[in-house]
């Protein structure tokens, strides 16, 4: 991997949330939502962050955007350390990295027109001075996301648009500052099945054409193949497996990944009565979790070591990392 093309590097990134019990109590517990994530993303590449609810994937996304300040580890963006940069000194980073949220209906202030909503980032960063130029940028962004004729959409209020249209506006807002990185946090999970693929195609095309780095957060393994070059499987704040998307889907190694794949709906009717072996139980509570493999209570293949020690990441195949004792090279 050439270091010049590295867009984003995470080293052992941790985000723990404090919970205080009682008014004066000094005892502090931590919810370890993201607990030691390491990966890097190249310019113009997309990575999928897959996991179930509570796995910490959204927290990771927000930490990458520095909406949260990490408790440990490092975030390097284009080689610059932004782990603990003060919010007021992060303005340049806000231009370089943007967010597409899950809920398109909540993503816009109801008192702003589409035009104003798209103009806001330009106003804040003051990149475009004149009103005419701003309007040009807004219309161009709307064209990019295929909301045409742009005049029909620019002066509408969010409540007048459908979920799919709003998500397009959200994508337009995410690209309007010409960023290098987009964190797309379950961008299609709240949309109608009929428009999901359109939005994903749009996002993928934009990503390829503008050479954007995209972190695609999803719980839906099925869409990752279509969307990303590599995939990260998260469970309870840990990355369990990371490899190219193709590799993860064809040759899953971690028991959790396997379970996820099994749980994916199978369109073949002949398999309708086949029993799907899904691990019982739920993800663990993340308040001060024990130091072992976090999947061990549910893992069908767990053995003694799994309950005692947290596994490191093993490179089971070239470029294929698994956090599981099963792949320890003896």
């Amino acid at each position: 991997m050439n270091s010049d093309t590295r867009l984003l590097e995470l080293e052992d990134l941790r985000k723990w949330f404090e919970i205080r019990r009682g008014f004066l109590s000094s005892r502090v517990n931590y919810v370890k939502a993201v607990d030691g994530v390491t990966f890097s993303l190249e310019e113009g590449k997309a990575v999928s962050l897959v996991g179930e609810s509570g796995s910490g994937k959204t927290t990771l996304g927000k930490t990458i955007l520095r909406l949260y300040e990490p408790n440990g580890g490092r975030i390097l963006f284009q080689g610059k350390d932004i782990t603990h940069t003060k919010v007021k000194d992060l303005k340049w980073y806000r231009r370089m990295a943007s967010l597409v949220q899950q809920d398109p209906f909540g993503a816009f202030a109801s008192h702003f027109t589409v035009f104003r909503a798209l103009e806001e980032p330009l106003l804040i960063h003051n990149t475009v001075k004149s009103r005419e130029e701003r309007a040009e940028r807004v219309f161009k962004a709307l064209e990019e996301v295929r909301l045409t004729p742009v005049e029909d959409f620019a002066y509408k209020y969010p409540h007048m648009l459908s979920g799919g249209q709003l998500q397009r506006v959200a994508i337009a807002r995410a690209i309007i500052l010409e960023p290098r990185l987009i964190v797309a946090d379950e961008p299609v999970s709240m949309l109608d099945a009929s428009v999901r693929i359109e939005i994903l195609t749009l996002l993928r095309r934009l990503q390829e054409r503008l050479r954007l780095g995209v972190i695609y957060i999803t719980h839906d393994l099925a869409t990752t193949r279509f969307f990303s070059e590599s995939a990260l499987i998260m469970y309870a704040g840990h990355v369990m497996e990371k490899a190219s998307t193709r590799e993860v889907l064809r040759n899953p190694l971690h028991p959790y990944t396997k379970a996820l794949l099994i749980a994916t709906p199978d369109p073949n009717p002949q398999n309708r009565s086949r029993f799907k072996e899904v691990p019982p139980g739920e993800p663990p509570a993340l308040v001060d979790p024990p130091k072992n493999c976090r999947f061990s209570p549910r893992c069908p293949r767990a053995f003694d070591k799994c309950f005692k020690e947290e596994p490191p990441e093993f490179e089971a195949a070239p470029g294929h990392w698994v956090k599981c004792w099963l792949y320890e090279r003896s």
């Binding site: 990295a97 949220q101 806001e120 500052l177």
Partner: peptide
């Protein structure tokens, strides 16, 4: 609300958020 988070992600200051995003609401 998500739109506040979105605005923070594109760099809106607290002042701007209060004046243009919260108070009008």
């Amino acid at each position: 609300y998500p739109y506040i988070e979105a605005a923070q992600a594109y760099g809106a200051s607290n002042m701007r958020l209060i004046l243009f995003y919260v108070i009008p609401k």
